[in-house]
Design a protein around this nucleic acid. Structure first.
Lengths: 190, 190
DNA sequence: CTAAATACTTACTTATTAGTAAGTAACTCA
DNA sequence: TGAGTTACTTACTAATAAGTAAGTATTTAG
């Protein structure tokens, strides 16, 4: 080897994340990742024994990031709307690249995934739902936002609106996603 | 051939529909369909030249069915809530078999699909959204249901709640789907 | 300075994919 | 009755999938 890569493992994770959000788990291969990074097929297997391991690492990654976000939101003095914006922002970014969220992507391929991933994704959803729920409760307490359902139910509604919103945006364009996003915030404010 | 099948073509469509809702477009093969129907791979190709043609036929099928439903709802004397229930019912049935709706399934695999399908799925979404929008407008006019957003926006919210609701149900169970479904109806009634 | 560990490549295997060409049995209609 | 036509099967191909074993160059540690 002439030039060593600084961190191939992280690059594989980066591309893997991109691919799963753009193509879906069953529609990209180790060869695709290798091509993108100008390495060989087997190099990907060196860092992640199998596709299952790569997916597990990716989900772990998301869990870590959401745990971090949850802590940040907990400790932040930001208002509930601001916090929800922080939660919504990544979905808006996904739209820009015709990508969908990891939960939607995994849910779609769920019945073809190994058991290890199936059980891990449950904690990710729990984490996200709890974070939104807490933010909603806090905002309601402060009188900043309003909703009639339980915070948990409201969190479910918001999450499904966003997850399917980015999916819809792929087909009928970002306009529909933005309509959904704005309606969500508007409803909570009124 | 000893015994001729009554209608293999329709059987292929039936299984194809099942598979796309259960596994996703990129996770089932003609071999899978053939195995299920006890025919050979090539027999599937006889009825549908390629996977793309099968998918097109499936989407056409959905379009026909939704056109029929739209007409039925238009001519029905049923109330708006009853009509929405008729729209929601299939999603509830999908949940029972850990399946997701065709729009969600196609949206997830969208970036890997042939152009022909991509453009056709747009009309399906249009059809569904218009149907819900009209039902909402009618119900509002009669004072049967209430919502603050435009009927189109409200239709988008309902559709995304349901589409992602069935996806979520795969992972965290039917309970969450039912919470979403009941909250939707409750909100429209109040 | 050397042995082991790291980060790969080369070269392969086995399974599965979509798809096709050629053959065949049964039905259909003139 | 016999010449299509329909609905397949048999038997294949070329491409791609995930995955592995063995080799190699570079880095690190003692």
């Amino acid at each position: 080897m002439s030039v060593r890569n600084i961190d191939t493992k992280e690059e594989i994770l980066r591309i893997g994340k991109q691919f799963i959000q753009y193509y879906g788990y069953n529609a990209f291969s180790y060869a695709d990742i290798a091509r993108e990074l100008n390495i060989k097929n087997a190099a990907v297997h060196y860092h992640f024994r199998g596709k299952e391991d790569l997916l597990m690492a990716l989900v772990d990654n998301y869990i870590e990031n959401y745990q971090l976000l949850a802590k940040q939101l907990q400790n932040s003095k930001m208002g509930a709307i601001g916090k929800l914006d922080k939660f919504i922002e990544p979905y808006t970014n996904l739209c820009e690249t015709d990508s969908i969220c990891i939960i939607g992507s995994i849910a779609s391929d769920y019945n073809t995934l190994p058991e290890s991933v199936k059980s891990k994704i449950t904690s990710l959803i729990d984490l996200v739902l709890n974070m939104v729920e807490q933010t909603l409760l806090e905002g309601k307490k402060k009188g900043e936002i309003h909703f009639l359902e339980s915070a948990r139910t409201q969190a479910l509604l918001i999450m499904t609106n966003l997850a399917a919103g980015v999916q819809l945006a792929r087909i009928s364009g970002k306009k529909d996603y933005n309509i959904i996003r704005k309606a969500l915030i508007k409803q909570l404010k009124s």
